[in-house]
Structures are given as structure tokens and as C-alpha cells.
Amino acid sequence: RKANTLWTTPKYRNKQRTLVFGTRGLTTRFRHLLNDLRLLLPHSKKEVKMDAKDKLYIINEIAELKACNSCIFFEARKGQDLYLWISRIPHGPSVKFHVLNIHTLDELKLTGNALRGSRPVLSFDAAFDELPALKLLKEIFIQVFGTPNRHPKSKPFVDHVLNFAYIDGKIWFRNYQMFDEQKTARDADLKLVEIGPRMVLNIVRIFDGSFCGATLYENPNYVSPNLARHIRRKQTAQRQHNRSR
């Protein structure tokens, strides 16, 4: 079978290694999402949790020790907010996202499944060819989320789609199985079944360096979760105050 697969195409050359890890204090849901990403990326490497007190730029040293050229890093704050960093090691750029609406692989309503280590089709919407910040992100996503052709831990099949869509100023991430529904003995219709995980990535900033350096982009629509909570509390207080008068 080997003579007649994806692997008949040129040699293994897209050598991507992505370090996937996070800080201490990740909640169960965040930890599950982290493990889901590890499952989806056969070219990922593991590292033990990092202390929240450590400065983020030491991640560059950790990644270089592991011979990784990119990193996905989960940063949890206050046991309720999750920030996701994606960085190119060692010279950047790096992006900080605030992660919203997380659904992990564990959820029962998502019925799709895929081979471990099979390669995904990466689907971007047209906005990723228009806005400079998104063009840069598309290049990073291709390298970090794509499975390199002929990676030793990958399988020579393509059976799922990672979908990135930019709406409402945020990036929506979905993962679908490619499923052939048999119409007749010879004909099959391509359908998709969602596998998970799901998440919404809100860009906070893009930095020139890896976990450091000048800011290249700031999202004007980003409201930090602390401020959002503060405003909500204030509004509730205002309502209560008005009612009591």
C-alpha cells in the first residue's frame, strides 16, 4: 500500500515542531482543551506546567531545548480566564488570544471522529487574505495547526477539516470529519460531521518577537475580561440602586 499513498509525494521537508503546554492553575476544561490540541497535532511536543510567576520569555529557552520552532501556550488567570499564545520560536511573531466559548472533544453532542495523526485540510475564509493582521495569522496557523506531509507520527490520509472563520471581530475554530455517505454502491456524497473541539479566539495583541518585543497589532474591540466583569457589576449595582429609590 505504501507505494500508492500521499507519501509518494516528495520527501519529508516541512519540519514543524510545536510545543504545547500551559501554566499551573488551568481549570479542567482548559486542560481538556490543551490535551485535545495535543491529540490534533502529531507534530506537538509536551512540557510540564510552568509556574505562573515565571516570565513568559523563558518559554523561548524551553522550546529551543525541545528543538521546537513554534509554541502554543495556555495562560490561565484567576481560575476563569484563558489566554492562548501562539508563537514562532525564536524570532517571533507571537499572538495573544483571549479564548471564549470552549467546547472540548469530550462533549457528547459532537459525533464525528478521525484517525489519530491523519492530516487536516485547513480552511480559511477570505478575510484571511485581506487584512494584514489576519494574513500573518494565516501563515502562522498553516505552520502550527497543519500536519506536515510525511511527518513520522502522521498517517498518509486526509479525513478532517480545521475551519477558521473571522466574524464579529473574532476567529471561530471548528473541526469536522470528512464523511462519505454511501448513496448507492458506487456513489458517495461528501458530508461533514463535527468532531470538536470548538473555540473562539479573540485577538488581544500581535507582538514582533516571541513572547516579547514591540506591538504590531492591537485589537480595538478587545475588552479585557476584568473590565467586562467590572462594567457588568457596575450596571447591576446601578439597576439595584434605581430600584431601591
Binding site: L6, T9, P10, R13, N14, R119, P120, V121, L122, S123, F124, D125, A126, A127, F128, D129, E130, K138, I142, G146, P148, N149, V158, A165, Y166, I167, D168
Partner: peptide
């Protein structure tokens, strides 16, 4: 110059927005 098979990326014609 790498063939498409290395990355498998597709971009849609119309923006989702």
C-alpha cells in the same frame, strides 16, 4: 515553490463576515 500537498490550505472566495 513547495507543492500544495505540504500545507493543504484552502481560502474561501467570500469573507464570512
Amino acid at each position: 515553490e513547495w507543492p500544495w500537498i505540504e500545507t493543504l490550505d484552502v481560502t474561501s472566495a467570500v469573507a464570512a463576515e
